[in-house]
Design a protein around this nucleic acid. Structure first.
Lengths: 218, 218
DNA sequence: CTCACCATACCAACCGGTCGGTATTGCGGT
DNA sequence: ACCGCAATACCGACCGGTTGGTATGGTGAG
């Protein structure tokens, strides 16, 4: 009993440590530039452990995307933006939450699956599919609120799914600008444009008011 | 005589052939996954030629970004969207042009520097800077029209540069969605949202009208 | 004993990069 | 016009290190 607990606590499982290391390294260097050896070193694990848990490096990539979905899924599920009153306000609060997440180093707030999809879309169908599952799955969590907000404004005909995916596109693009410029603030600016677009579509209020309430630049 | 002409025709310069191959391979596989050997093979050139023209693989990356700027710069300069009447219409026509460019394989319409920036932002400052120069330089070509269009609507206070960069963010994000999903149409949808946002900001007309004029989905 | 879990040693292929050498070109002197 | 000659462009074998992946052996829990 105690042995088992200590085991799971201290060792924490090579698989988890490898996945954790994968998130950090792939986000910073990309998938192709991250070697299996580097992964093992970062996780404090040998190569034998790696290939015990993953059939190949590609398999690790797929598992990393799935792990990413779990980690971020839990983060967003527990976030406070769900408490906002009404569907439109919740959608705006979601974007505000994404905006607030931007702080620290670039590799700490950018998206794992967006990065991997760029590299693997042509060379690894499995990784591509896993990345798309993560992105589209996350976007799907926004659809009910967007749908309700659109309906409330008499915009029933429009596709809530398309708008949900658009929010992800803006976020991914914002990350690219931040990486390319080296200035995270560039990402914030684009996200503010997204907030304004959503304001115009989903609310009666002036966008400037809502943007002011989202706080100052980090 | 005939020998010389045939030579120059066949050789075409190893540097150009390498840069051309770099655009194709890096867009499809990413920078890290593209080996120098593969580059040379695709260009029909030996490794000696490669390292004669480029000090290192990183140097090739920087040169590829610069070459990309030239190629795309010429493409956009010659495009017809400049003929649209008035600044706002030109900005919208630009986005329509970008939309129309989306056809064929994913690696044929997506952005080289956006892909490279994701991989190299942390590991190669030189490549990062070259990518940012390409993106921001392209965005800068939109600033005068956006500025005039904003002023015409009494929105002088807002940053035209920020909005110009936002258009690039949406495009980059749209490419990621297309790559991740495997469906180029996903990119088109996001670009349509961008058109609508710009309509709301820069024109008096209803967005739906302008969107209709941009033609059917490819 | 069994079996999941992990460590070590090892491999062929491939990586970016070097180097000595050759072919081609541009150009100044005569 | 011709030559001489240095500079440029290119070739391809080669190098040490690294790559993803394997084969085998140990070990502790059930």
């Amino acid at each position: 009993m105690a042995g088992t607990a200590l085991r799971q606590g201290a060792r924490r499982g090579a698989r988890e440590k490898l996945l954790e290391a994968a998130l950090a390294l792939i986000r910073a260097q990309g998938f192709a530039a991250t070697s299996v050896d580097a992964l093992c070193a970062a996780a404090g694990v040998t190569k034998g452990a790696f290939f015990h848990h993953f059939r190949s490096k590609e398999d690790l990539g797929v598992a990393a995307a799935a792990h990413w979905s779990e980690v971020t899924g839990a983060l967003f599920e527990a976030a406070a933006y769900h408490d906002a009153p009404g569907p439109a306000a919740r959608v705006l609060a979601y974007v505000g939450f994404r905006r607030a997440l931007i702080s620290g180093g670039l590799a700490e707030f950018t998206c794992l699956v967006g990065t991997m999809a760029q590299e693997a879309f042509d060379s690894s169908p499995a990784i591509r599919a896993a990345c798309w599952a993560s992105i589209s799955g996350h976007a799907a969590t926004l659809v009910p609120d967007i749908e309700a907000a659109l309906a409330a404004r008499g915009r029933d005909g429009e596709s809530a799914e398309s708008l949900a995916l658009h929010t992800q596109a803006v976020l991914q693009g914002a990350f690219i600008l931040a990486k390319a410029s080296g200035e995270p603030a560039r990402a914030v600016e684009s996200i503010d444009h997204l907030s304004r677009y959503l304001c115009l579509l989903l609310t009666d209020e002036s966008p400037d008011k809502i943007l002011k309430t989202q706080g100052e630049t980090p």
